[in-house]
Design a protein around this nucleic acid. Structure first.
Lengths: 152, 152
DNA sequence: TGCATATAAAAGTCAAAGATAGTCAGGAAT
DNA sequence: ATTCCTGACTATCTTTGACTTTTATATGCA
């Protein structure tokens, strides 16, 4: 008897065979496999991670969905390496900036993009009052300011 | 089956295709979509917000109406407004996305930039193990993945 | 006529119900 | 020991309906 998680993983990957994206209803999928809905979350969070090249987006409420996207671009490129292997569970500010600079030198990103990325990693790493909303506000503001500087 | 709210949103935006303003009768519109009149208010208050560049004016009583107006103009002024007045000490995910979408529609930022910004605000607001380095790693990874992704 | 009041015709508000998805602790299986 | 799986609880998004407020118009009366 194959593992439930493996079956669900394979099923989702088959759905994605055409195209790099698929949209799921969590409850439907759970019913199809006769398991708890939260099992789907388990599979997604263990088998469709950023590190393994997937991005998940979802929405709750009526008309809710889970979208699984596969990151394109096979093998060799620098970005892929950086995204998948170059960062572990944690990274210093210095290393983050170094990686961003490297992408800029390779012309993989623009100057503006590099500045947006740097301000995001710089500002995300300090604690802030009003936890979630406060952090969001700080990062967003810092990015707006980057754009504003650029436009002057 | 597309979501009712989405259909109504699209319908209103199509009506506005010519010109930056449209006038509606709430009850007529509700009847057209076979829904409760208050549904229209819901759509207006979630999809036609100030952050996303709309202003609503209305009048009750006989001859009542709802007028939806699109605020024109992007660039430096919009950025300055958003950076200075648009965000307080905290901001929700929904508002942050609305503002970023608006910048995109006004062509003040590119699609790629909008995706980088969204992923930064989305990922900065969840707790993470290994506080500072962990947060930096997650944001950086998520931004690298945006760059890798062909389509969202 | 001119004013006050009633009636009708809008639109607004808000809380509750419905419809999804997410989280997390803990037991089960390997 | 680690990975798998579930269920209870939480969070978010949509839709509705009962009730309120506002405005225009009709009616009645001095």
């Amino acid at each position: 008897m194959p593992l439930l998680s493996d079956s669900i993983e394979r099923f989702i990957k088959e759905l994605m065979a055409q195209g790099n994206e698929v949209s799921l209803r969590r409850n439907e999928l759970a019913q199809h496999f006769g398991c708890a809905p939260s099992q789907i979350n388990y599979v997604l969070s263990t088998r469709f991670t950023l590190d393994s090249g997937y991005v998940i987006a979802s929405r709750r409420g009526g008309g809710g969905y889970i979208r699984v996207m596969r990151i394109a671009g096979g093998g060799e490129n620098l970005l892929r390496y950086m995204a998948c292997s170059g960062i572990g569970e944690g990274i210093s500010k210095a290393r983050a900036h170094a990686m961003i600079n490297r992408l800029l030198e390779e012309k993989t990103i623009t100057l503006r993009e590099s500045r947006l990325m740097k301000t995001a990693v710089d500002n995300c790493a300090q604690p802030v009052a009003g936890l979630q909303d406060g952090m969001r506000a700080r990062i967003l503001k810092s990015m707006f300011c980057v754009l504003l500087m650029e436009s002057i």
